[in-house]
């Protein structure tokens, strides 16, 4: 097939998918399973149409590899270099991101519990924490690389600093959500402050804590990848991206981005699932009863 016909085919496919989607969106079946299937099919079809249009444009117009490689080229590169990608994934995700994420979220959570005891500290720390979550903390990456060396420890340190404040602010906000009625009820049961925390306030704070965990899962990956731009051993996702960009191997860069996207979406999905299990009582989950 010549380039032009590939392009025309992809355009036709895209138009057909769009037309099909407009039809699908109008159907409102009674049955729950069918409705869920349709709600899944529409975005999948849209994504597939976009991918095929991308393939068609890059092939049809012979777009140079440097500007935009076709999805098939990226997939080929991904399949052929799984060992390099796996080594990078291990270095960046399994070492730096997970270690930093656990330490950052954990310490943010503990500090929030401690601060919760003292209204004075809470009033002082909350504005500072809110400000810090808005700041470009990622800028400390070069400093951390100087302090902790080139290996994954410095990346984990950046991740700790990035994830700490969102967790702190969200947990403190979550602990404040209990109403006066519920607290009074606990008091009539003669609950100790610890019981109050464990049985009432922490469960109530869970939606906020999961919100922070979800925000942090993306932040952690960004922090680790960007920190690697400042110096690494010769392995790691951020290192590979900046090195291959320098050599104009765009298919490798895209394969690495694909890995990052996959890791990001999967960890987000896992957290969302865990959230649904833990906060099954929350209004946002009750409504979509099975």
């Amino acid at each position: 097939m010549s380039g032009l016909s590939i392009f025309i085919f992809s355009l036709v496919f895209w138009a057909t998918a769009w037309w099909l989607n407009t039809r699908l969106a109008r159907i409102t079946p009674r049955d729950d399973t069918i409705r869920r299937l349709i709600n899944l099919a529409i975005p999948v079809l849209f994504g597939a149409a976009l991918l095929i249009l991308w393939e068609g444009i890059t092939r049809g117009f012979d777009v140079p590899l440097v500007i935009l490689p076709a999805p098939s080229v990226i997939l080929e590169r991904f399949v052929n270099s799984t060992d390099i990608l796996w080594a990078d994934f291990q270095q960046t995700y399994l070492k730096a991101v997970i270690a930093g994420y656990v330490m950052g979220c954990g310490s943010g959570f503990i500090v929030a519990i401690l601060v919760d005891r003292s209204p004075f500290f809470k009033a002082g720390l909350m504005p500072v924490g809110n400000l810090m979550s808005a700041l470009p903390i990622i800028g400390i990456a070069p400093i951390m690389v100087m302090w902790f060396g080139f290996d994954w420890q410095s990346k984990a340190a950046v991740v700790v600093a990035m994830t700490f404040f969102p967790m702190l602010v969200n947990t403190v906000a979550g602990l404040q959500t209990t109403g006066a009625m519920e607290r009074d009820l606990m008091r009539t049961y003669a609950a100790s402050p610890t019981q109050m925390l464990l049985k009432l306030r922490l469960p109530m704070a869970m939606p906020f804590i999961f919100n922070a965990l979800k925000i942090n899962s993306t932040l952690a990956l960004i922090g680790a990848i960007v920190a690697e731009f400042f110096g690494t051993p010769t392995v790691g996702m951020g290192f590979r991206i900046s090195a291959e960009v320098g050599r104009l191997n765009m298919d490798m860069v895209w394969a690495e981005i694909f890995v990052a996207a996959l890791a990001g979406s999967l960890s987000y999905g896992a957290l969302a699932l865990a959230e649904r299990r833990v906060t099954f009582w929350h209004a946002s989950n009750r409504n979509r009863a099975t």
Binding site: V66, I222, I241, V253, I257, A260, A261, G264
Partner: peptide, 14 residues
């Protein structure tokens, strides 16, 4: 959920 910043160097070079 995608670490968008990772594509920053690519956008610049492209």
């Amino acid at each position: 959920t995608i670490p968008i910043l990772a594509i920053a160097p690519m956008i610049i070079v492209v």
